[in-house]
Design a protein around this nucleic acid. Sequence first.
RNA 1: GCGAGAGUGGCGGAAUUGGCAGACGCACUGGACUUAGGAUCCAGCGGGAUAACCGUGGGGGUUCAACUCCCCCCUCUCGCACCA
Length: 844
Amino acid sequence: MIPLNTDTEFTMNGYRYNPLEIENKWQEKWELGHSFKATHKDSRPKYYVLEMFPYPSGRIHMGHVRNYSIGDVVARLKRMQGFNVIHPMGWDAFGLPAENAAIKNKSHPARWTYENISYMKAELKKLGYSYDWSRELATCHPGYYKWEQLFFLKFMKKGLVYRKKAPVNWCPKCLTVLANEQVEAGVCWRCDSVVEKKELAQWFLRITSYAEELLEFLDSLSQGWPERVIAMQKNWIGKSTGMEINFQVEGLDQAIRVFTTRQDTLFGATFMSLAPEHELVPELIRDSPDKDRIAGFISNVSRMDQISRTSENMEKEGFFTGKYCINPVNGEKMPIFIANFVLVEYGTGAVMAVPAHDQRDLEFARKYHLPVKVVVQPEDGSVLSSELESAYAGPGTMVNSGQFTGMDNEQFKEAISDHLEQRGLGKKTVNYRLRDWNISRQRFWGAPIPVIYCQKCGPVPVPEKDLPVVLPQDAKMPEDGRSPLPDLQSFLEVECPECGSPGRRETDTMDTFVESSWYFARYADARNEQQPFDREAVDYWLPVDQYIGGIEHAILHLLYSRFFVKALRDLGYMDIDEPFSNLLTQGMVLKDGAKMSKSKGNVVDPDEMINKYGADTVRLFCLFASPPEKDLEWSDSAIEGAYRFLNRLWRLVMELLPELKPVGPCADMDHDALEPEEKALRTKEHESIQKISRDMNDKFQFNTAIAGIMELVNAIYLFKDESKDSPNRREVLSSAVSSVLTALSPITPHICEEMWSKMGYDCPLSQSLWPKYDSRALHREEVLVVIQVNGKLRSRISVPADVSREELKVLAQNDEKAIKHISGKEIVKMVIVPQKLVNIVVKD
RNA sequence: GCGAGAGUGGCGGAAUUGGCAGACGCACUGGACUUAGGAUCCAGCGGGAUAACCGUGGGGGUUCAACUCCCCCCUCUCGCACCA
């Protein structure tokens, strides 16, 4: 319920703050006036502000409201500061929930999706965001995914796409495979099911061929991106430099290739550990008497789910294959083991075990009574023996290392690398943790992968002229949750474009992260039907100057998008290296200390809040309660506070309305001619604009910017009651009120527009310019100076701003309160900070 | 274990980067107006015998002066984690 305002002052001009009425009115005006439509034929500098587009799940939630309110403030602010701003919005519209809803409602996923989009679009409009809706896109529209399919074909031609049969991550609940990035601690990123391994032929994007560039360019982002996002990406790419070394298998014409970053410990390698899935394993165990037991062990391990297999307290286990390999530097025989902790995906799937200098190898060696050989002695004087309790991984001097004994291990690392390379026993390599991106999904509601399997020609790309491969409208979703495509003859049956024989369409669709990897580029030219986007438009608008979204996309979406931009650049579609120059990761919206969720029953519905308080109040609360990167705790009383502030401002302006004139914010006037209170207010106004501009622009600290606005409002309240009537009173008041409305307008645009127009302005605030403070107005005649004695605050005095250091010294020493603390003591020193502070240092 | 960040009143949070700790707001207390107050206005609001003094997670240090810089430690949040 909106509290009914009946107080006399409030209604005296007949205007009551009615948020919904005002908001409707201005939203309509903006829409009819195409106020936020952007075009690249413009001489102003461009500014691209983008918020991560939403999945059309049904309703907007508070997380969206916060995200989009932050973005809208940036957009409106930059517009007022003279930029040509593009601020688009669209829908990340493919994905599994639509399929589930379709099964439930016995309809088509498209229907649910488009209904949600229209509902949520109305919600966004009610919040008054300054989007250029003419660029709206939905990724499930063939007009969008057609170009994605084109990119797929271009990638294919360039060797950036390949199909391979591989053990892949399978989510038993989503009935589809997942990319490595989508498996979090062994469970599905979306539904938390434990992920299984499955052997399937899948389509991969060769993101690893950009691994080095993706890593290197992180440095160029360090100014504009949060450090932790960069750290997470670095970590994910996981570069390590080392060597690949070959170990000849005894009695076989085969070598085992290992990857190591500690080639300096090669003399200490006493056995070999292979991943159970290593390709040589079958051959190595063929003649083993233990063959069956080993095979059982291998199938046990490889069938294990990711969680238990990679958990820390998993017991290290292995089996001896019965075979040996030869240490290339000392010719020693090393037993070959199969070990459950060796990962086939990383490095070469084989590890040279150096128990003295690697904790895992040590544990394994102790368990199976394998030799431990120290080859690096620490330089602190302690002497390690093979009895050591924990492995030593630090630096030191080489021992037991043939002719290299006595060398520093770091130098030796270089020496042994050259030594091995010269003899053809190994080579220096760089290894990445990053894997290629599996984009195949066994789902219906996604962009079809444009490939046809021909009985004769094999997989054949769909010719570009036949794009898009459209998702069938007549598909019926099977009850069991599988994709309908593999059973849909009308979709499936097709002629081979190369030889004309019967072919079958690929039924896998693309990972939905593919759509979100390039949507920001499509916004530059969203209605283009000839090509993905016009080169001129993309060159003008991209990169995104400010990207805003949740930290949960720190790796997935941001890494994929960076990869896409680099790949599209190399295909000649654009000329930038990175998509997002600046990134702001906003915190979550919490209620009772937890993320809002239906299951916890702590959801606050934005619609309800808008109906109760209006969009301006909801926006104000979201921006005021916490700085953007931090989590925001929802508070019913704090939103009341935001509403109260807007009412208070409304009352102030309505009361003063008869006096106010459209003089503009920070209006020019003869400062010296003003009364003292007028000077004070004018100075406060200009100081506030200085502070607010700084907080908003440089730091996106909207919370402190709003605090600054509130202070200015408080100052106006004081002024209106205390100042005398004078020739300049109206100008001073009008300017200050105009500054408040202008500065607040990016945050609460509707109420500000309304009061602005009531003040008599013709040009709407949304098209006005951000005020410039006059540094002359910042000058105060009197300043407050703090007096300390031995660093402790003792007094405050008001002095003329231009007082000299000497005068200040005298004033401070003669200050009554200061005298109490210095009398009878010797003044050792006086520290003067002009206009601020005097510190008198005394001793007894 | 590695990486990133945080720790300030009853609460959310400020502090121009070394110069008045607690801006702004919420909550609370007292008062005014009032049939009424959940509206509004005024005042107060870190602790403390309202005096000294003590206070920014703890302990040291640098400095005339430390929330801020340096060293050690504790706690919490997030991410990664048997990565060879």
